[in-house]
Design a protein around this nucleic acid. Structure first.
Length: 528
RNA sequence: GGGUCUAUGGCGCAGCCAGGUAGCGCACCGGACUUUUAAUCCGGUUGUCAAGGGUCCGAAUCCCUUUAGACCCGCCA
């Protein structure tokens, strides 16, 4: 077998960073600060895919630093984009703001300076919670400060050439007719309704007419205003097909990942950066969308949104990072039900890292250790944490609904799973408990009971509900079954079905005391 | 019309991007424990890695062709 050369820490992130470096070197660009970027949508509720874009870009930054280069992550909010649809669960009062830049729409919840900032903040909060550091920039400021004006000027001067190229590359015709620039109508504050038809290069002004436009399936009324927008001062923005290029050039961006849904835009932007702006486009990596379990795209405007915040109710920050760093290729169907295996997989990686699990293949060992380091943002702990199987916690949490943390902890100590109660375990019990409440809710199963079984059950309910604690619950149950002509085996099965929703379970006497005998009596009485 | 992804035990999936003994969970079977009872512990069964070709000492993995399914783009951002 040939010795393979292992790049960096052996993960796809290292390989990507190394390709990037090689490209930069062959371009002969300055490598003092290799800036990477992640775009955040500000129109809808940011889901785990948006988070992934930033988390992965941060991974590339870490890899570059690991190779000895300086690198920054810019998190850029597209908050000058217009609102096209009201997201699920948001008030209808937003209707009047359709097509306005999201940074000019008031926050319907009143907690941020705008609707756009409200949305971006959800994502930034997610990044903070998983430990990602970034420099935040927003489109509204970028344009207000005129940071892109040179690029806008160049792009508008070449708009005919660009329009033709867009048509050639992706088959979109509209920019042969209109400029790739959307002014915000000075009269009604709307984007998209104001169509730019002419660029007066000497004055750096765009002529526009505000008229009706179809956005999504909705018609948005234009106000008929005719105006001129100064690209250095007035509000307006480049179309997406050319905007990235302008930003890359202005901010000197060397890397940006993108989802396959904007593949075409990236293709055009790469060309614009290279050929029109004279700025070699950043290195890219394409990733697949996260789909929900039915195979549908997770849409920001639909209800099936997995946000970082929701995920963190059930899983640790490291489980999020593991999901995003373990691989980038391939379509992913994602749901909260993936959390338990990711939680356990992290423990397994930790065991490999600390040498408790042996891996023979050297390349795979390096890769697993590397992945562990990235999940810890290249700052791995000095020693392993205490591991508790997440699924076990969910099972225990199902049994103990009151005083959960305390009682589950006690069980873990009894089982010998842990030696000491630790705060980290408390946290684990909490999130596993959330998971159990939300997803492991047992339905009231239909249980077939004949007359003698019903009678036996009734006697048992009375016995359990009595003020005096029966001496030996296990034996009591056994005796009740026998004296009522019920096969003990069947009777136990019935009890498990009612209590746990399964046909088997742990020794039932202790289980009933664990849950609380009166509680059990109440549950059982519903079947008599 | 253009593009991308996916196909691996009964079911759900990992492994593929950097080729080296086909793995995990559930299910199933056996055992431990028990006057009946495992969610625990130990052991076990289950595979033409979609089909065909190529490269290689060696292919689930890389390349080409085919089939089936899903998704994205062709409004907009």
């Amino acid at each position: 077998m040939l010795e393979q050369e292992i790049i960096g820490k052996g993960t796809w992130i290292d390989k990507l960073a190394s390709e990037l470096l090689e490209r930069e070197k062959s371009l002969g660009r300055n490598l003092d600060n290799i800036r990477v970027e992640s775009g955040l949508g500000a129109s809808g509720v940011p889901h785990i895919g948006s988070l992934g874009d930033a988390v992965r870009a941060y991974g590339v930054k870490l890899a570059l630093e690991n190779f000895g280069y300086k690198s920054d992550l810019i998190a850029y909010s597209d908050d000058l984009d217009g609102l096209r649809k009201i997201p699920e669960g948001f008030p209808d009062s937003l209707e009047e703001h359709l097509a306005k830049p999201v940074s000019s729409i008031p926050d319907p919840y009143g907690c941020h300076d705008s609707y756009g900032m409200h949305m971006s903040s959800i994502l930034l909060d997610g990044l903070d919670k998983v430990g990602i550091k970034y420099e935040f920039r927003r489109a509204a400021d970028t344009y207000k400060k005129g940071l892109l004006q040179e690029q806008i000027h160049t792009i508008l001067q070449n708009s005919a050439k660009i329009g033709a190229k867009i048509s050639e590359l992706v088959g979109q015709e509209k920019y042969q007719k209109y400029l790739p620039y959307f002014p915000v109508c000075a009269n009604c504050d709307r984007l998209y309704t104001a169509e730019a038809t002419e660029y007066i290069a000497d004055e750096k002004k765009v002529k526009y007419l505000c008229h009706d436009a179809e956005i999504g399936s909705k018609m948005i009324k234009g106000c008929g205003h005719k105006g001129e927008a100064d690209i250095t001062k007035d509000l307006g923005k480049l179309a997406w097909k050319v905007e990235f290029a302008a930003r890359w050039a202005a901010f000197d961006i060397r890397f940006e990942a993108y989802g396959k849904d904007i593949m075409d835009s990236v293709k055009v932007n790469d060309w614009v950066a290279d050929e029109i702006l004279g700025f070699p486009h950043p290195h890219h990596v394409k990733y697949e969308m996260f789909l929900d379990k039915g195979g549908k795209k997770i849409s920001k405007s639909l209800g099936n949104v997995i946000t970082a915040q929701k995920w963190l109710e059930f899983g640790s920050p490291k489980s999020v990072l593991l999901l995003l760093y373990k691989r980038i290729t391939g379509a992913r169907e994602l749901g909260f039900e993936d959390i338990p295996s990711l939680m356990n997989e992290y423990n397994e990686l930790e065991d490999i890292y600390f040498g408790r699990i042996k891996v023979d293949n050297q390349a795979k060992l390096t890769k697993s250790k590397g992945l562990y380091e990235y999940v810890n943002l290249l700052n791995p702990p000095k020693q392993s944490s205490t591991h508790v199987n997440y699924r076990l916690l969910v099972e225990l949490a199902k049994t103990f609904k009151e005083n959960r943390v305390e009682r589950v902890m006690k069980k873990l100590l009894d089982y010998g799973v842990i030696k000491n109660p630790e705060p980290e375990i408390e946290k684990l019990i909490e999130i596993a408990g959330n998971y159990s409440n939300k997803f492991d809710e047992q339905e009231k199963t239909h249980v077939d009971l004949d007359e003698s079984a019903k009678k036996a059950l009734k006697i048992l309910v009375d016995a359990l509900g009595a003020d005096e604690e029966p001496e030996d619950i296990q034996n009591t149950i056994y005796q009740i079954a026998k004296s009522n002509d019920v096969q003990p085996k069947d009777f136990f099965k019935i009890l498990y079905q009612i209590i746990l929703g399964t046909s088997r379970g742990p020794k039932i006497g202790p289980l009933i005391s664990d849950i609380g005998r009166k509680q059990v009596a109440k549950t059982l009485s519903e079947y008599t």
